Computed example of a mutant assay.
Amino acid sequence: MTTSPRQERRSALPLPLADQTVLSFRFTPSPRGARLARRLACCQMDAWGRHHGTPAHDAVELILAELANNAVTHGRVPGRDAELRLSREDGGGVRVEVSDARGERLPETRDAGTGEEGGRGLLLVAALAKEWGTAPRPGAPGKTVWAVVPAEPVRG
Rank of each mutant, 00 (worst) to 15 (best):
M1F: 15
M1A: 14
M1T: 14
T2Y: 15
S4P: 05
R6N: 13
Q7F: 08
E8D: 11
S11F: 05
S11K: 08
A12P: 07
L13Q: 06
P14F: 01
P14W: 02
L15W: 13
L17Y: 04
S24A: 10
P29F: 02
P29T: 09
S30E: 10
P31M: 05
G33D: 04
A34M: 00
R35Y: 13
A37R: 00
A37N: 00
L40N: 00
L40V: 00
C42M: 13
C43W: 15
C43S: 15
C43D: 15
M45R: 04
W48P: 05
R50K: 09
H52M: 14
G53W: 03
T54M: 01
A56E: 05
D58N: 07
V60N: 09
E61K: 12
L62I: 15
L62K: 15
L64H: 09
L64K: 11
A65T: 12
E66Y: 03
L67G: 05
A68C: 10
A68P: 07
N69E: 14
A71L: 00
V72T: 09
T73F: 09
T73Y: 08
G75D: 03
V77A: 04
V77W: 00
P78Q: 01
G79P: 03
R80P: 09
R80G: 07
D81G: 11
D81Q: 14
E83D: 11
R85L: 06
L86D: 06
L86C: 08
R88Q: 14
E89T: 06
D90K: 15
G91I: 04
G92N: 01
G92R: 01
A101M: 06
A101W: 02
G103W: 01
E104R: 12
R105Y: 07
R110K: 08
D111F: 10
A112E: 11
G113L: 10
G115P: 10
G115A: 11
E116S: 10
E116A: 13
E117S: 13
R120P: 07
A126I: 07
A127C: 09
L128I: 02
K130Y: 11
G133A: 02
A135K: 09
P138G: 07
P138K: 08
G139H: 06
G139Y: 04
G139R: 06
A140T: 12
K143P: 07
K143V: 15
K143G: 13
K143L: 13
T144A: 06
T144I: 07
A151N: 07
A151G: 08
E152T: 06
E152I: 04
R155M: 14
